[in-house]
Design a binder for these strands. Structure first.
Lengths: 200, 200
DNA sequence: ATCTCAAGATGACAAAAGTCATCATTTCCC
DNA sequence: GGGAAATGATGACTTTTGTCATCTTGAGAT
C-alpha cells in the first residue's frame, strides 16, 4: 500500500485528488495540507512514501518544502505537480533531485502511473517539459532578478535605489543589462517576459 | 438526474471533478471541454441542465462563453468556478446573470450543494466574495483597459498608436488618466495594480 | 605582488514617459 | 436647436528611462 501525502492550496483540487487516489486499491492518502509550513510539519511526522506537491502555495512554496525535506534526508519521494511549465521552476526542481514533475494539465491516469513508477524507483518528468524548455536557463543573476521584481511592480529607479542601497546609476545599468539579456525594449517588457518564463 | 457539463482547462481538475460528480446518485456528467469554443459548441448541442465553467480558458474565456449562452437564451444554468476572487470577474458574472459563482478554494461539498440549489432555482455566490469586493468596480473604460493591456506587455506609446490608430498624444493622455484613476505613479505600476484586481 | 574579474559608480546624452491647458468633433439628451 | 458629454488631438514642458564609455575598489587566483 502506497502511503500518500498531498500538499495543494486549491482546496477543490486537493479534495478531488484525495478522494480519487484514495479509491485506488494500492494507495492510501494519509495526510493533506494547504500550505507549505503545514506540509513540512506533517511530512516530518507521517513519513509518507510519496508526497504530491504543488509549487505555488502560501507560507512556503513547494520547492522550498522539497528543499527542507532534502536537507533533512527524509526518505519520502517527491512529485511536483504544478500548473506552470516555467523553465525556472523545472530547473530548480531537477537540481533538488525530486522524483517526478507533472503538469496539472495532464490526465489523472498519468498521475497514478507516475506515483507507481516513482515507488518503483524511477524518475518521471512530464514530456511537455523535457525538450526545449529545460535548456532555457534563467539568464538573470539573483541581483538582476531582485531588481526586475521591484521594477515589475512599477517601482521607479529612485525607489529601488533606497530599497537596495545602490546608486541610481547602478540600478539603471542593471536594468539596461536585464533589458539586453531578455531582448526586451524597456523594463516593462522585460518584466512581462521574465514573468511568463518564471524567471522572477 | 441532473445533467452536467464541465468546462475547465486544467485537465487534472476537469478529470477529477468529472469522476467525483459522476458518482453522485443524482448527477451525471454528459460532456466536458478544455476551452471556450469547444464548450459553446458542445453546450448548444447537449443542452445540459447545469454548466460548470472556469473563467481562464483558451479560445474563449468562461465569461465570454456565458455571454454567448445568455444571448442565445440557452436555458442551461451557469455556475462559474474560478481561482480568482477578482472584483472585475465577479462584477461581470453578476451582470450576465449567472446562477452561481464559486472559488476553487472551497470544498467539493460546497460544489455539489451549489449545483443542487441552483437546480432548485436559487442563486449561490461564494460568501468570500459578496462583501467588500463587490463594491470595487472597475474604474477603467473599455478603451482604457485595452490601452493598459498593451502597455502592460511593455509596448511603447508609439506601438500602441499604430495598433489603435490614435495619435501618440492621445495615448499619453489616456495613460495619464489611467495612472490617475488607479493611484499609480507610472504605467507599469498601473498595470500591476489592474492585473491584481482583474481589471484588465 | 600583480593580474583579473566582479560589483558599483559617474557623467553625458538621447529618447520616452507623464502632465496640463486648450481646442475640435461628434453624439446624445431635453 | 443649444448645451453637455465623450472622444480625440496639439503643443510645451519636466522627469524618467535607457545607453555607453569610463573609473574605482576589493576580492581571489597564481
Amino acid at each position: 500500500m502506497i502511503r500518500l501525502f498531498i500538499a495543494e492550496d486549491q482546496r477543490m483540487l486537493l479534495g478531488a485528488l484525495g478522494s480519487l487516489l484514495d479509491m485506488e486499491d494500492d494507495m492510501k492518502v494519509i495526510g493533506q495540507a494547504t500550505n507549505g509550513e503545514e506540509a513540512v510539519a506533517a511530512i516530518l511526522k507521517l513519513q509518507p512514501d510519496v508526497c504530491l506537491m504543488d509549487i505555488e502555495m502560501p507560507a512556503l512554496n513547494g520547492l522550498e518544502v522539497a528543499e527542507v525535506l532534502v536537507q533533512r534526508s527524509i526518505p519520502s519521494k517527491i512529485i511536483i505537480l504544478t500548473t506552470f511549465a516555467r523553465p525556472g521552476y523545472f530547473e530548480r526542481a531537477v537540481k533538488l533531485g525530486v522524483h517526478g514533475y507533472l503538469l496539472k494539465d495532464g490526465e489523472i491516469d498519468e498521475l497514478t502511473d507516475t506515483i507507481r513508477k516513482v515507488m518503483a524507483g524511477k524518475r518521471v518528468f512530464s514530456p511537455d517539459l523535457t525538450f526545449d524548455i529545460i535548456r532555457e536557463v534563467n539568464p538573470l543573476t539573483p541581483k538582476e532578478q531582485e531588481i526586475l521584481r521591484l521594477a515589475a511592480l512599477g517601482k521607479t529607479t529612485k525607489e529601488i535605489t533606497s530599497e537596495l542601497y545602490l546608486s541610481s546609476g547602478t540600478i539603471r545599468n542593471y536594468i539596461s543589462e536585464i533589458i539586453h539579456k531578455l531582448g526586451a525594449k524597456n523594463r516593462t517588457e522585460a518584466a512581462s517576459i521574465a514573468e511568463k518564463k518564471g524567471w522572477i
